[in-house]
Structure formats: C-alpha cells, structure tokens
C-alpha cells in the first residue's frame, strides 16, 4: 500500500462512510416501524454510495502511485478489493462509526453525532484543492442535509420523550460521547494535507459541530455533565473489538469465494 497521505486520507473518508453505512444497513428489515426502517436504509444507501466514490478515488491514486514507482505487474487495487480485502488494522475509520447498533436510540445518536460532523466536514471539503474530493463533497453534502435533519429530530423526540426513551438516550450518551473527540483529532495524514488546502482543517469545523450538537442535546434534555476523556485510534488503524465482527460479516462472501460476482 502506498505511503502517501492523499490515498490514505481518501481511504479514511471511504472507511467512515462504508462502516457506518454497513452498521445502518444491519437495521434493514428490523426497524421499529416500516417508515423509519426505510429512512435508515436510505441513509445507509447514500453512505455506501459515497464510500464507492471515495474508494474509486483512492484506488485510482494508489494505482497511479504504484505505476509511478515502476511497480509493474502488481495487481491493481479496486473499490472492491479495498472494501473487502483489507483487515481491521488497515481500516482508517473513526471509532464512532464502528460502534455496535445497540437499541434504536443509540443508533440514532451515533448517526446524529456523525451527520453533524459530516455536514460541516463536506461543506469545507468542497473547497479542497483535490478536485475529485471537492466534487464528491459537493454531491454528498446535499444528501447529508437530510441525514442531519432526520437524526437531529429523532434525538430530540427520544431524549425529550418518555421516561424510558429519555433514560435510554442517557445510556447512549454514556456509551458514545467518548468517541466524538476523535472526529476533531487530526491524524498525521490529515495534518500533512490540511496545510496545502487538500484536507479539511478540523479545528475550523469543531466549534460549528459543538454549537449544533449542544443546541440539539439541550432540546433533547441531554445537555448534562459529560466526561472529557476521549478514546481515539481508529484513524491510525487501532480499533475497538466491534470492527472485527462487522468485517467478518461484511467480507465473508469475498473471503470464501474471492472475486465472485452475481
């Protein structure tokens, strides 16, 4: 695998979208009511579509890099080999994305934290000096507006709902809050790319995310005390045990029958 920062950055973004998209797709057929099952499945579809553009971009960059280094004869990577052929330590997604679904409330809160990040992130990435990343961001941002509004409204409905839904959202806060810090903690490849205007400067979007999240949590009566301690490592390939189970299921068919198509 190339050691250059740009393909790794594209992979990081692709892995975020694929892993959370896959998690959401686990709800398909199991949602609490049909309309919301369809809503989350639609969001999963958007995310997996965005992941495909990002993997295709990463694959192109990696193959060009290999060719430039004279690595002729090496099998080129594809969007599929990147999604199905790497193990957990090669994935660069944030830990938040891989956390298990839990109940509906936890899934909704995970989506809200992530969509709020992606909303401001894609807004900035549209100005990237990498024109392909900018185009993917422009396309994806429009889709994330729906994800953000849908998940925000559900966080409020459940947090400010019944005693049962409120207590479950409190539990989801305890489970997930510690994974939000990583969204704004830049990896080496992000630092290298943000100075030349390719990657998003996470410090720019942090206050925007905090403001939006605070507004929604207050309306959901979830604005209480929180621990400041944050868990990180996903962007460097150090994952929670959750990712292994996800990959075991997602990659099974390609591992058992390599390159199979139907």
């Amino acid at each position: 695998m190339g050691i250059h920062a740009l393909p790794i950055y594209a992979l990081h973004l692709a892995d975020n979208a694929l892993v959370l998209g896959h998690r959401n797709s686990e709800w398909t057929g199991y949602g609490p009511i049909l309309e919301q099952d369809i809503a989350l499945s639609n969001i999963a579809l958007d995310q997996i579509g965005q992941a495909r553009y990002l993997y295709q971009h990463a694959a192109r960059l990696m193959n060009e890099g290999a060719a430039a280094q004279g690595a002729g004869g090496v099998t080129p990577v594809t969007e599929d080999s990147l999604a199905y052929g790497r193990d957990a330590w090669d994935f660069r997604n944030c830990l938040l994305a891989e956390q298990a679904n839990g109940d509906w409330g936890k899934t909704i809160l995970r989506q809200f934290f992530f969509s709020a990040w992606q909303f401001f992130f894609y807004e900035q990435l549209q100005h990237s000096r990498d024109s392909e990343l900018a185009a993917i961001a422009e396309k994806s941002h429009k889709e994330v507006i729906y994800h953000l509004r849908w998940s925000s409204e559900w966080v409020i409905r459940l947090g400010d709902g019944t005693a049962e839904s409120h207590s479950r959202m409190g539990k989801a806060m305890d489970d997930l809050w510690k994974y939000t810090g990583e969204l704004f903690s830049p990896a080496d490849y992000e630092r290298k790319l943000s100075a030349p205007g390719i990657a998003v400067d996470l410090a720019v979007i942090r206050p925007l995310w905090e403001e939006r999240v605070q507004e929604v949590l207050m309306a959901a009566r979830l604005g209480g005390q929180r621990s400041d301690w944050m868990q990180t490592g996903g962007k460097q390939g150090r994952h929670t045990e959750q990712l292994g189970y996800l990959l075991a299921e997602m990659q099974f068919l390609q591992r058992a029958y390599p390159n199979c198509e139907w």
Binding site: L45, D46, G49, R52, Y53, K139, E143
Partner: peptide, 8 residues
Amino acid sequence: TPTYSGCP
C-alpha cells in the same frame, strides 16, 4: 451525472 450517490 447520478441522482443520489447510492442510487442502484
């Protein structure tokens, strides 16, 4: 150009 990113 595609409609939505994930449009199958």
